[in-house]
Amino acid sequence: MNDIGGPIIEMRHVSYRFADGTIGLENVNLEINEGEVILFTGPNGAGKTTLFRHLIGLCLPQQGEVLVEGVSVSRNPRLARERIGLVFQDADCQIVGETVGGDVAFGPENLRLDRKEIELRVHQALAAVGLDGLAERRPHTLSGGEKRRLAIAGILAMEPRVLALDEPFANLDYPGIRSMCGILAKLIDSRRTVLISSHQVEALLPLLSRMILLQEGRCIADGHPMEIMCKAVAMGLIAPGCHTEMT
């Protein structure tokens, strides 16, 4: 497990409602520290994706504020997006390159890095997700699980301080879930701060330092993963022996 450092992200009394009045987040207060591996879980519609989108300014609080390295995301979303790499649930929406290698190079090229640095980052990112050797492949020929890994590689190449993954196991079969857990374990071993939104609680438990339970936009429990899981089961929010996504 990673050593825990100082805070990177703070959410202070954050509330957000959608245009139809539905609650997205309700008075959320969180502090996320360097080196933490945190699972955000809860029923569908609990606010997990909305919370992640607030971290990089894709949603802005209607009340309260989100801080990244002490700087308001509302005032400086660019800093938040440099520090936090968000992998969306739909991997296809993040794949823009004509080849696997070209897709991973897209971000570093926009940073105007020199060619050697870009090539190094592409190589390291593809190796980290088990796609080394596929740099010349066309992304549309990849499987769903490989596309998910490619999306992660594209974020890793930007070298963010925080890696946030929204439902990284969506539409994966059991072998795909196990493979993804192995990749996450390696990323955590590299001392990354990792935030995961998922229903796949048991598969992730050995990797976690903390678990946060959401319901109706509120953080209703936050602490040691086993304690929070027991509470979620007792409340009927997670089924005992949960291996698959809740419906």
Results as ranks from 00 to 15, higher is better:
4 I>F: 11
4 I>M: 11
5 G>T: 03
6 G>Q: 06
8 I>T: 01
8 I>W: 05
9 I>A: 10
15 S>I: 14
15 S>A: 09
16 Y>V: 14
17 R>T: 10
17 R>V: 09
24 G>P: 10
27 N>S: 15
28 V>H: 12
29 N>L: 01
30 L>A: 11
30 L>S: 05
32 I>L: 07
34 E>F: 06
35 G>W: 00
37 V>I: 11
37 V>S: 06
45 G>E: 04
45 G>D: 04
46 A>H: 12
46 A>P: 08
46 A>T: 11
46 A>S: 12
48 K>F: 13
48 K>I: 12
49 T>G: 07
52 F>C: 15
52 F>G: 11
53 R>L: 14
54 H>K: 07
55 L>D: 07
60 L>T: 08
61 P>R: 00
64 G>I: 00
67 L>S: 12
69 E>Q: 11
71 V>F: 01
74 S>R: 07
75 R>P: 00
78 R>C: 06
78 R>T: 06
80 A>T: 02
81 R>V: 04
81 R>E: 05
84 I>G: 05
86 L>K: 10
87 V>M: 03
87 V>N: 02
89 Q>Y: 15
92 D>A: 08
93 C>V: 14
93 C>Q: 14
94 Q>M: 05
95 I>E: 06
95 I>N: 05
98 E>Q: 09
99 T>D: 15
100 V>A: 06
101 G>E: 08
103 D>A: 08
106 F>L: 06
107 G>Y: 11
110 N>P: 13
110 N>E: 14
111 L>F: 15
112 R>S: 12
116 K>P: 02
119 E>S: 06
119 E>N: 08
120 L>I: 03
120 L>R: 13
121 R>W: 15
124 Q>N: 09
127 A>I: 10
132 D>I: 04
133 G>E: 13
137 R>E: 13
139 P>M: 03
140 H>S: 03
147 K>L: 01
147 K>I: 00
148 R>T: 07
149 R>D: 04
150 L>E: 05
150 L>K: 05
151 A>R: 00
151 A>C: 08
157 A>G: 10
158 M>Y: 14
159 E>V: 01
159 E>D: 12
160 P>G: 07
162 V>W: 14
163 L>E: 00
164 A>L: 12
167 E>K: 01
168 P>K: 06
169 F>I: 00
169 F>E: 00
173 D>H: 06
178 R>N: 08
179 S>F: 05
181 C>A: 15
181 C>G: 12
181 C>R: 09
183 I>H: 04
184 L>M: 13
188 I>P: 05
189 D>I: 02
190 S>L: 13
190 S>K: 14
192 R>A: 02
194 V>D: 09
195 L>Q: 08
197 S>R: 01
199 H>M: 05
200 Q>N: 08
202 E>I: 02
203 A>T: 01
215 Q>R: 15
216 E>Q: 13
217 G>D: 02
218 R>T: 04
219 C>W: 02
221 A>E: 02
221 A>S: 04
224 H>W: 01
224 H>S: 05
226 M>N: 07
227 E>L: 02
229 M>W: 13
229 M>L: 15
234 A>K: 10
237 L>Y: 00
239 A>C: 03
240 P>H: 07
241 G>E: 15
243 H>K: 08
245 E>Q: 04
245 E>V: 01
